[in-house]
Nucleic acid binder design. Structure first.
Lengths: 194, 194
DNA sequence: TTAATTTTGTACTATTTGGTCAAATATTGG
DNA sequence: CCAATATTTGACCAAATAGTACAAAATTAA
């Protein structure tokens, strides 16, 4: 196949774009911000990704793919799903970078920004969050079978509860101390214990 | 004092502006959108409110004032604070207009949009949400005294828990059915019962 | 009446927005 | 080397943005 080679790495560029969309949101992120972060030219961007919106969809999909793997890995690393949940919520209570508190959850942010504005993007974010709920459900069911999770509440409802907790913490992390967030997690996890 | 009187009612105009900011967010709401909704001219707006940002601050303050009154009234209408909380969360599970689901909570939206972008506005929203937490705290304490709320957890933590629940539901309402939302509320309220 | 004040509407600025395009550059197969 | 193909580059564009300016009409209190 003839033609000049791509000089930049798509993955690297998408990763940089993720950071910009994540911290600023879709609308507030300008093409200039994005191109500077991605370190490519306008032409390259439009040639490769199509449009700002298309780029966002790519970023969203890629983000979710990694999040999915990460979540599953964390659940698989523990015998007890409660420990998996704790590990997952450590991203909230003890983020790698304290600046992550302001960023919140990318999917939650997107659902919040797009709902009522761009229903298509909102639905993408919503469906991904529902997939997250699905992961919770899978490991909760396993936990119920092993007697690690209470049998009295339905796993379906408990999964929704965990997602609601995640949604809430995505906002609450912008207002509470680490200690308060940790207490909050531990308090709510009581609802899952047998 | 001489001079022509204002033709429009500031309260009415602010109410219209609230709707626009609430559904679209601060950034996405254009002056054109706002002026059309408020039904006044550019000159009148800038003369009365100063700037888009100043208008937003007025809208935010006014919104919170009403929310505060509303919450307090709901708590006061019931002997048991648990019923007060249920009534407050009916705004989420059974909103007056189903379109309110897409709108979420104005304060939560603002904290989400502004955190990391405009720290001053973010702090305004955050402080108002912390005031909401304060209201929860007041009535939880009363409930503890009356044996309606469990004594084992600290009222401070339970208040934070309620706010976290609110934050979460402000997102979750954009993805779940009424029935699921109601089950979610009732499940989580278990944590407050004695 | 006069001075003060608001409303209305239009025109304007200056900046930023997402997006386009053509020319230059690099790569490959024939 | 040549022709075809693909990417890079930066200039360019039309639309929208918040905000300003202003003049003329309207209303009011003193």
């Amino acid at each position: 196949m003839a033609g000049r080679h791509k000089e930049f790495d798509e993955e690297t560029a998408l990763s940089a774009a993720t950071e910009v969309f994540w911290t600023q949101g879709y609308d507030a992120a300008s093409m200039e911000d994005l191109l500077t972060a991605m370190n490519i030219n306008k032409g390259s961007m439009y040639n490769t990704f199509g449009s700002k919106r298309d780029l966002f969809v790519r970023v969203l999909d890629r983000f979710f793919k990694y999040a999915q793997h990460d979540m599953t890995a964390k659940f698989e690393a523990f015998d007890n799903p409660l420990d998996g949940v704790r590990e997952i919520f450590r991203q909230v209570t003890r983020p790698a970078d304290p600046k992550d508190h302001a960023k919140g959850c990318f999917l939650v942010n997107t659902l919040g920004e797009m709902c009522g504005m761009d229903e298509e993007l909102a639905t993408m974010a919503r469906n991904k969050l529902l997939d997250v709920e699905g992961i919770y459900l899978k490991y909760l069911r396993k936990g119920v079978k092993n007697g690690q999770i209470r049998k009295e509440a339905s796993p379906e409802l408990m999964a929704k509860f965990l997602l609601n907790m995640w949604n809430g913490m995505s906002i609450s992390r912008r207002m509470y101390s680490r200690k308060a967030l940790e207490e909050l997690v531990e308090m709510q996890l009581q609802l899952l214990k047998p």
